[in-house]
Computed example of a mutant assay.
Amino acid sequence: MSERLSWFKSSHSDDEGGACLEVALEFHEFAPAALHVRDSKLPASPEVTVSAPAWLAFIAAVQPGA
């Protein structure tokens, strides 16, 4: 799957070797379908894939006041 995804790092990431993640968004018919996460230092590392509804539920649950 990685070959077709466009990965990006957080604006908080730097090149000093810190523990950072890369994220790629997967779309199906113009709607978000999944979020992929991997270690930015090891692009060939395994990915964690989370469905869009599961990611939105996680974000809602960790928002202040949730």
Rank of each mutant, 00 (worst) to 15 (best):
S2F: 00
S2D: 15
S2Q: 13
E3G: 05
E3A: 14
E3Q: 09
E3Y: 00
R4P: 00
R4M: 07
R4T: 02
R4L: 08
R4G: 10
L5N: 03
S6W: 01
W7R: 00
W7T: 05
W7P: 03
W7L: 02
F8G: 14
F8I: 09
F8D: 06
F8R: 13
F8T: 15
F8M: 12
K9N: 14
K9M: 15
S10T: 08
S10H: 09
S10M: 07
S10P: 10
S10K: 01
S11C: 15
H12W: 06
H12N: 07
H12P: 05
H12Y: 14
H12S: 08
H12Q: 15
S13E: 04
S13H: 12
S13T: 11
D14Q: 04
D14M: 05
D15A: 14
D15L: 13
D15G: 13
D15T: 13
D15Q: 14
E16Q: 15
E16V: 10
G17T: 13
G17Y: 13
G17M: 12
G18L: 09
G18N: 13
G18D: 06
G18W: 08
G18S: 11
G18E: 09
G18M: 09
A19S: 15
A19H: 15
C20H: 14
L21V: 15
L21W: 07
L21C: 13
E22M: 11
E22S: 15
V23I: 15
V23W: 09
A24T: 11
L25Q: 05
E26Y: 11
E26L: 14
F27S: 07
F27R: 10
F30W: 07
F30N: 10
A31G: 00
A31E: 14
A31L: 09
A31V: 11
P32Y: 04
P32L: 03
A33Q: 10
A33S: 06
A33W: 07
A34K: 01
A34S: 03
A34N: 02
A34Y: 11
L35Y: 04
L35D: 03
L35I: 11
V37A: 00
V37W: 02
R38N: 04
D39M: 00
D39Q: 05
S40C: 03
S40N: 01
S40A: 06
K41L: 05
L42C: 07
L42K: 11
P43Y: 03
A44V: 02
S45R: 05
S45V: 01
P46Q: 05
P46T: 12
P46H: 08
P46K: 08
E47F: 02
E47I: 12
V48I: 15
V48S: 12
V48C: 09
T49Q: 05
V50N: 04
V50G: 01
S51C: 03
S51I: 02
P53R: 04
P53G: 05
A54V: 12
A54Q: 09
W55T: 04
W55E: 01
W55Q: 04
A57G: 12
A57P: 02
A57Y: 07
F58E: 06
F58C: 10
F58M: 05
I59W: 06
I59M: 13
I59R: 14
A60V: 12
A60N: 12
A61I: 02
A61Q: 06
A61K: 06
V62F: 01
V62P: 00
Q63F: 04
Q63H: 11
Q63N: 14
Q63D: 09
P64C: 05
P64S: 08
P64N: 00
P64E: 05
G65I: 06
A66I: 06
A66K: 01
